[in-house]
């Protein structure tokens, strides 16, 4: 049976609430711990290391060389500077779960 589901966007505060309810720490402490989890992951990625979270997925940083791009609106060519980008590869479990498996 199909039930109506209004799509929404979860934020840090929803994660803090989940931690608060599951672990029984205060909301403020939960919010601070959620930030701490994201901060430790960010610090590790900044060093260029990857972060592997089993049953969730892997975050990895890759370096892109400079290349010539084009402003899609004006068509003017511009050099895109070399940069580092973050990519996420979902685990097989997560891929199955979002497909209702």
């Amino acid at each position: 049976m199909l039930t109506f589901h209004m799509n929404k966007t979860l934020t840090r505060s929803d994660l803090a609430n989940a931690v608060h309810e599951q672990i029984g720490l205060s909301y403020n402490e939960s919010a601070q711990l959620v930030s701490s989890v994201l901060e430790e992951i960010s610090l590790c990625l900044e060093t260029g290391d990857q972060v592997k979270l089993s049953s969730f997925g892997t975050f990895s940083v890759s370096s892109k060389n400079a290349r010539v791009g084009r402003n899609p609106k004006t068509g003017v060519e511009a050099t895109i500077t070399p940069r580092r980008v973050l990519s996420f590869r979902p685990s097989n479990l997560m891929k199955k779960r979002v497909n209702g498996g």
Partner: peptide, 26 residues
């Protein structure tokens, strides 16, 4: 349990068709 709750909550949200937006992270 903290780490598991954070990532299970994100996975469940996606399973329900929701987005998860973590400012400053992604």
């Amino acid at each position: 349990q903290l780490v598991n709750t954070v990532f299970d909550t994100i996975t469940e949200a996606l399973e329900n068709g929701d987005r998860v937006e973590l400012r400053g992270f992604g």
